[in-house]
Amino acid sequence: RGIQAGGLTDWTVERVRINKNGRVGWNGDLGSASSNSGKIILRDIEIAWNGCGERVATGEPWACWAQQTGGYGDGLGTAATGGQWLVEDAFVHHNTSDGLDFRYADGAPTTSVTLRRVYAVANAGNQAKVKGNALVENSLLVSSCAYFQGRDYMLADDNCRAGGNTLQLVFTQNNTATVRHNTITGQGGVLIGAIEGDSTNRLAIQNNVLIG
């Protein structure tokens, strides 16, 4: 693991690379005390090649693995969490599971995830997955989710897992999600997926380029 951190309040992480960790890049699951609060800011970061090792001599990523062989290669993943998350000016690529996995955000009125100027590409699952209140803007999301096909210890079911949807939104109740000014493309199931929730939720998709 690169970073194992949960139960945070008002953290800022800037100008950091979380790359080539044999398992998850940022693991936010510490058990029952994992939920975060306040402003959690990740700015000017790279999260890449997690789920892969690194050759000492060359720095080349190798021995990549994922769920089907017991690995866990999310770029960033949390347990149930609150907080106002901001991921800004980020390059998230070539992780062996999801790129940014906020599936376990708690969906509360005070919890939100903002992805701004994120370039996410070639992650083997969803490029970004967000539950609850969300803003995704000015980003480039490219689901070349079969990149790892035939590589190292990656198996067929590891590629394009969770449908390989480029952006996956998950709702609870009374959530608002806005997706605007992005370019979204990919080879997975859908470019923008929206699941769960009920009629109290609102989704606005504005001024995007969507290329299948």
Rank of each mutant, 00 (worst) to 15 (best):
N182K: 02
K129C: 04
N174V: 01
Q84T: 13
D89R: 15
C145E: 01
N207Q: 12
T166Y: 00
V92W: 03
F171G: 03
R161S: 15
R117L: 07
H181D: 15
V121K: 13
T200P: 07
A79R: 11
Y104W: 12
N174M: 09
D98G: 06
G132D: 02
C160Y: 03
R117P: 09
N174G: 12
S97L: 12
V136K: 06
C145I: 00
N123F: 00
L141W: 05
L167I: 03
Q84W: 00
E196K: 13
G197V: 02
T200S: 15
T185H: 05
Q84C: 03
V136H: 01
A134C: 07
Q127I: 10
D89A: 10
Q187S: 14
A108T: 11
A124V: 06
D157Y: 05
Q84S: 13
T81Q: 04
L203Y: 05
L191E: 00
V92N: 03
L167H: 00
E196G: 04
D158G: 07
W85V: 10
A177T: 00
R103Q: 12
F171S: 09
Q206V: 15
Y147P: 04
N123Y: 00
V136R: 05
N182A: 08
F102K: 06
G82I: 08
T183M: 05
I211Q: 12
D152E: 10
V190E: 09
H181Y: 14
N159C: 14
N201Y: 08
W85K: 06
N159H: 11
F148L: 07
Y119L: 15
F91D: 14
V142G: 11
G132M: 04
P109L: 08
